[in-house]
Amino acid sequence: MKFNTKCVHGGGKSDNTGAISPAIYMSSTFSHPGLGETTGFQYTRESNPTRDRLEKLIAGLEDGFDAIAFSSGMAAIDAVFHLFSPGDHVILGDDLYGGSIRLFTNIYEKNGVEFTYVGTSDLAAVQAAFKPNTKAVYIETPTNPMMEITDIRAVSNMAHDRNALVIVDNTFLSPYFQKPLNLGADIVVHSGTKFIGGHHDVISGFTIVNDESLAAQLRLVYKTVGACLSAFDSWLVIRGIKTLALRMEQHQKNAIAIAEWLKQEPKVTKVLFPGLPEHPGYEVNKAQSTGFGGMLSFEVDNEETAKQVLEGIQLIQFAESLGGTESLLTYPVTQTHPDLKPEDAERKGITRRLLRLSVGIEDTDDLIADLAQAFNK
């Protein structure tokens, strides 16, 4: 079954009613046919038919053995880090979503997990960061918000030689453009709130694995901690996925056109988009994915210009989040990454001149026209 078809039919048939849209099972608990017998569902914190359908769908899209649907992307990441114990060491990319950094710094460092941040696009730096107690490497590719690319195959080979796991946040490209498990990664995480859900109307997260033992460990965390996705939210994500392939193509088409337009804008000093041939990660990204996605960042000449654009856009909306049908412009320094130390933010280029654009599925010309009028107010 091809990817586009999986998006529509990959969760299996709905039920025996013939309903095209799957049922939403709003039951918190399920009765047993008899003593020692089960329908396969006991209690919704552990399992639910609507969520089960979504999990089968996501596992199929990522070519995984098992997928688990969480109440948020952060809940999914948190579940993964329950795999580690005090004294364990994890290598982290040094350009990650600010919420992930906040989780690692305020929760897991306090609980005894040791972290080393490195630029994971630099393979020598990754190799140098390994310690005898290293248990995993955690990466985003492309990164948020600096759009850096990491060679998943190379990092996976490096980690597996040392019996360490590789965890990839695949939110920016979605399984439509990139499948990290097929490149050697052990665990994929998603904020399903973003491209997978795709409509800015549901918060969700996912973990996907190929290993039965890892799946069992994550499911134990899942049912114990209880950060499960509700039946209704599962249905919303199933509905969103039906158009995932179509949306990703339009996101990318628009992003390529806007990136090329931004290069010609005099007030733009840098465009960060993996789909530009001059991007340092362009060839690596081409080798491990089938596209470049709909996310880009750009730097302007000064803070005043950044403020002018943020306040001047009319069609594009000034808002956090990403990956939905509507285009969103974000100011990382105050919105997604405010918890970074100023010196760390400055070192990474997350300054008051940096803007991040989640390109929606609107008409390309309308988006460019909106940016043009915002720059020239």
Rank of each mutant, 00 (worst) to 15 (best):
56 K>V: 11
165 L>C: 13
249 E>I: 10
117 Y>Q: 14
268 V>E: 08
133 N>K: 03
240 G>Q: 08
188 V>T: 13
56 K>Y: 00
224 T>I: 06
281 G>R: 05
127 Q>C: 04
296 L>K: 02
226 G>A: 08
225 V>F: 11
37 E>V: 15
208 I>V: 15
263 K>Q: 15
178 Q>V: 00
203 I>L: 13
129 A>T: 09
127 Q>V: 09
264 Q>A: 15
173 L>D: 01
206 F>D: 02
75 A>G: 08
83 L>E: 09
273 F>T: 06
11 G>C: 08
199 H>G: 10
116 T>F: 02
35 L>Q: 08
188 V>W: 05
87 G>W: 00
68 I>D: 03
234 S>T: 11
223 K>L: 15
347 R>F: 14
21 S>K: 11
8 V>C: 11
263 K>C: 15
256 I>H: 06
354 L>Q: 04
214 L>F: 11
316 I>S: 01
42 Q>D: 11
69 A>Q: 07
217 Q>H: 12
27 S>L: 10
291 G>H: 01
330 T>Y: 02
43 Y>V: 04
194 K>N: 08
68 I>M: 06
233 D>Q: 14
351 T>K: 12
352 R>C: 12
134 T>H: 09
44 T>M: 11
43 Y>G: 00
60 G>R: 05
1 M>E: 10
202 V>G: 07
112 G>R: 12
43 Y>S: 02
64 G>L: 08
153 R>K: 15
275 G>P: 01
198 G>W: 10
99 G>C: 10
229 L>H: 06
79 A>Y: 03
196 I>P: 02
361 I>A: 04
8 V>H: 07
372 A>F: 00
375 F>I: 07
72 S>Y: 13
240 G>P: 07
35 L>H: 08
208 I>Y: 00
108 Y>D: 06
108 Y>I: 09
351 T>H: 12
46 E>D: 09
164 A>T: 06
19 A>Y: 11
197 G>I: 03
133 N>H: 04
89 H>K: 05
218 L>E: 06
307 K>L: 07
163 N>A: 14
60 G>T: 09
40 G>P: 09
108 Y>H: 15
303 E>D: 15
207 T>S: 07
38 T>E: 12
308 Q>S: 09
127 Q>P: 01
313 I>V: 15
187 I>P: 01
247 R>P: 02
